[in-house]
Structures are given as structure tokens and as C-alpha cells.
Amino acid sequence: MTSIMTTSKPITPTRTPSAPGAAQVSLRGVDKEFIRPGRSGETVHALGPIDLDLRRGEFFAVVGPSGCGKSTLLELVAGLSTATRGDVTFEGKPIHNRIPDGVGVVFQEDASFPWLSVRENIAFGLRRIKIDPKERERRIENALAMMGLTSFAHSFPAQLSGGMRQRVCIARTLVTEPRLILLDEPFGALDQQTRLLMGDEVLNLWRKTGATVFLITHALDEAAMLADRIGVMSARPGRLIDIVETGWPRDRDSRIVQEEAFGAITARLWRSLRAESMKAIGKPEVEP
């Protein structure tokens, strides 16, 4: 592939950058096409070709215009969907419409089960995993404590705020101790302050668990604050047109939004994205 992707140098790192590990997820020449429902049976090229390596233990975010195939990309990595062409591998093993062990997904929509208590929701994540009862209890208590849900263990989702319900979903994923956590716009439905705070919690989890995090988001500031690297996608068919290394230290929190480099990163993301976003809404940018 003659890639239009460019890997940039870090933008004015202000502290020691985190050290990413070896590739854990690998995408090679990945394309996804859909057949449009209806009589025409027209083929829609939704995504690709995409080449990408996710390094073990890194925090990778993807931003892109609406409808560019960000969520499709996540579904391919999660094994919820199969690539039309190309290979997706997790820890060296190909993913063919099969959910790999060690992968947890948190969706944008509230996926907490309303018929179960918070504790039961979290325990549900362990349904398929054979572990002894003590270990099971330890994991549930850990997940409850990590997400600040211990005092709400016996509440039901309907009694919680949107942010807390999303924490329940994250805890249900954490309890499986995943090595790769996929987040599909998990804070999309939350207000700005809650999103910043949830961002801090996700960073905290990322540090504590050592898992690789793959975040899909439409919010440039969220990507700039959370990620080690940010992939910028083009309008449909979504391709990676830029990868920005933020150079943030591993030990960071939402206060980095005050740093000068934060502004530079978001500005760069917007420069890459503006023309693509215009294309996505059907108004191609005209050079002045």
C-alpha cells in the first residue's frame, strides 16, 4: 500500500515519555466492505486499506469524521466483524470473527443489564471463566473498588447516573483482567466534566492493569489527553492519514489539558481532520 499515513515526531514532550512495548495487535491491508441493504445490493467500501500495529501496553486513540468507520475498525479488532480483505491478529493469532480471549470491550451505549445489581453485573463478566470462588470474589471486589462502586454494589443500574452505569460496564470488563481493552466512545453520552474525570479513571486503570487500550472517540481533546498515540482517520472509506505521538508521560491526568503541548496536539489533529470532516458532511474544502 502506498500509505498516506505519516508517523510524526513527538510534539514538545514536557515530561519523560512512556515506553511502549512490542506489537500486540496487528492489522495488515485491512479492508471492510458492506452490501447496502435493499434492492440495489450496492457495495459500500467502509474502511481501509489499514495497516496498524498496537504496541503492548500503549494507549492508542482513533479520531475521525462521523461515519468514517471508527467503530467498524474496533469491531474488527474485537472479532465482532470480519475483514473483507487483509489480516487482523491479536498476540500473533488471527482474529476471524472470533472473540479472542483477553479482550474486553466497552461500548458507547449503556450496556449495564437493568435486571442485575451492580455486583451481579460485574460478576456476569466472569460467567464463562472458570476460576475458584475466592479468586472470583477478589476480582469482583477489586473491580468494584477500582471503579468506586463498592457502596453501590447492591444498587440497580436504574438507580445510578449515566457516568456510574458506564463505570459498571468498565468494571464488568476489568473483572476479566483483559490484556487489551477496546473503548468505543465510552464517554460519548456524558457531560464534559464527567468525561474529564472518567478520563482520569481510565488512565488510572490503564496504569494499574498494564493492558493495552484502544480508544475510539470523536472528541479531539479526549484523544489528546488520554493517548500515547493518536490515529487520524480520513472520511469514508476510513484510512489512517496521520499518527500523532503525544509524548505524554505514563503518569498523567486531566491536568495536562493546561499544558502548551496539549493545545499543539489538538490543533494538529484538527488540521489533519478539518478537510476530512468537510468531506464527510458533503462540503469538500476549497483552497482559498
Binding site: 465482532l80 472473540i99 461500548f107 451505549e109
Partner: peptide, 9 residues
């Protein structure tokens, strides 16, 4: 999303 969650699990 419930069905997707079940598939992921």
C-alpha cells in the same frame, strides 16, 4: 448492545 456484550464475553 446487550447481544454484542454477550458476544464479546
Amino acid at each position: 448492545v446487550f447481544v454484542k456484550t454477550g458476544r464479546v464475553m
